[in-house]
Every structure is written in C-alpha cells, then in structure tokens.
Amino acid sequence: MSPRRGEGAARYRVMLYCPDRHLVYDGRTPDEAGVGGGITARVRMARALRRLGHRVTMVVNCSRPRRIDGVDYVPLDGVARLSGDVVILTTSGGGLDLTPALALEAQARLRIVWVHGPDRPAGFEALGAEAVYAVSNFIGRIVRLEWGVAGERLFVAYNGYDEASFARAEKRKPRRDPHRLVYFSHPSKGLAAAIGVLRRLRARDLRFALHVFGGPGLWGGTGDGPDPEDGLVDHGLVGQTRLAEELLRSAFSIHLQTRREPGALAIPDALRAGCVLLGSPVGCYPEVIRDGVNGFLVPGDADDDSTQARAAERVLTLAANPPMMDSIRRT
C-alpha cells in the first residue's frame, strides 16, 4: 500500500474505531484523570501515528468532536462510515463487542482488529478483517490456536510507554526512594498480593511503603480503595505525567497475579521508570521479563503466603545491593 501524495498530505489516513461506551473519554483523559490500559493504549497509538505524519481520526465514546494533539476525535454517534487507508477496530471493555461496526459502511484499503486480551470479541469473525494485531506473543498464540486465525493474518506489537510524560516528569528531578514499592493497576489483578508483600517487608523494616495508583474506576467500575493500614498509601486515579513522576520516585513495581496477563501498559511504564519489576510468570510476563536481567519472575500462586514471602525476600536482598539494582535498571 503506497502512501498518498500531495503537498502537505499525511502518509496515510488512519481511523481507529472503538464502540465501547462504558467510559466517556478523549485524548486528554489519560493525562488529566487517568483511565485503564485499553483506552490509554489507544490514545498513545493515535498520538504516535500522528507524530509519524499520518492523518488520524479516533471514533470513540467522546462527548464532542475536537482535535487533540493533532488527532481528530469524533463521537460514536457522529459517524455512519468507517473510512481511511487503514481502519483499526478494537474493544477493551464494556462487553467486548465489535458488532456495532457491522452496521457502518466500511471503505478501507486495510482493516485491522487490535486485540487486547484472550476473549474473542463479539462480531470478530463477521468483520472479516484482513489483519489481526495482538499485544503480545501470548495473545498471538491464543488468536492463532484458539480463535483459528491464520498466521499470515496476524502480527504482534507490544504496548509502549509515553516518553513525553516521562520527559516532563524528569524535569522535576524526582528522587528515588529505595524502600518505595508501587502497584498501579486494577485491584483485581494483584493488589491483595502486593499488600501481602508489603506486610512481610514491614515486619523486617518499617521504612518500606506501598503506593497504590488506580482502582475500580480504571475499568469504569465503582468502589472504595484498599482499607487503610500502616505503610499503605492509596492515591486513586491520577494522570499519566503525575504517574510517571511517582514511578520515578519508586524502587520496586509489584506485579504478582494469577490472571494471565495479556500485555499491561504497567510493564513498559515500570521498566522505563527504572522500577525493578517483580512479576508472576503468567501470560506475557515470561516473554518480556528475563529473570534476573531486567526484572524478576516469582513462581507460585500469587495469593499464597509462600509466594509473597519469596517476593519480599527478593526485595530485601535487592534493597541491600544498590549496584545490582542499578544494573537491572540499565538493562
């Protein structure tokens, strides 16, 4: 597919379409209020494509048409046709349903379904997209072996971090606390395990603290944060620049979970910030984390006391060895 030519023309016209309606958002939402990884990934992708010179339109559940960072945001009810050189269709919440796209006229040279998780969205087969984009090899294998998608239609690209957020945060010169742990994801993934690690650490050294970012609101839910306890600081939802600064202040990022991880944004964000990541060997973690090189994999059930105890021991060993911590951060 050759680029369109002409004075000032973008290389390609790209439309990203997501029919999810469980949250109202646009390109400002991740920076101003904080939101889940699926939405944040879409906004980051749109920005990245625009920086490459493409003309980008986001058809999503936004409140009104507006241009943000060079990307045109259009409300779902404001379109009757999906058009462009490339149309990317995706869903990451609200029932995982792509069938609304079937009611729209489609004019595209290439249609791609962007897959964020292991559950096949409704309407996937009927769309008949030419390509499928998976966020990890773990998800790619599921799409190929369980969904029956031919390998030649499939490609994998990991989610990335937003360098601009970290660049802004680094200008404030945040100071890293060697005893500061961070958990920044939906509570269902592994917050209870992270708190279990914290309790074991504080039984040995009261300087350790766990800073929690996110909450049920990440996925459009409601509910309170974790119960207060010593050493636990709940920040709730925060924007991406604030989160980047908080990560730069932290020494460890705790990712113990039983849920098979599709490809969380928390992984590249933690690594970019220089947090030493301790994760469970589930989902995409083994393909991203090389144990002992750029982070650590902690085998065992994340909810089991023995697994949390091993993670705490690893943190204590690393905290006592700053040269090793620096080596891992540089990898």
Rank of each mutant, 00 (worst) to 15 (best):
L98S: 02
I289D: 03
L318P: 14
E287A: 11
L82C: 12
G160D: 05
R176M: 15
V288Y: 03
R199W: 02
A320C: 11
N137M: 05
H211Y: 15
A46Y: 03
V43C: 12
G94I: 00
G292M: 14
I195D: 07
R175M: 04
R329E: 03
D97Q: 08
S2P: 09
L248H: 02
P322M: 08
T90W: 02
G117L: 14
A101I: 01
P228F: 04
V149N: 01
H235P: 15
P121I: 14
D177P: 15
E246V: 14
V35P: 13
L237N: 11
Y73H: 11
L248K: 08
A264W: 08
A302P: 00
D85M: 11
A33F: 13
V238M: 04
T99V: 10
R21C: 04
F213P: 10
V212D: 11
R55D: 15
A169W: 06
L248S: 05
R314P: 00
R4W: 03
W114R: 11
G279A: 15
L52A: 15
A169Y: 06
A251I: 00
P216M: 02
G27C: 03
L237R: 13
R153K: 15
V71T: 07
N321Y: 06
G223F: 10
A9V: 15
A131R: 14
V59H: 05
R249E: 10
A33I: 07
S2Y: 14
R64Q: 10
H54G: 12
E229T: 11
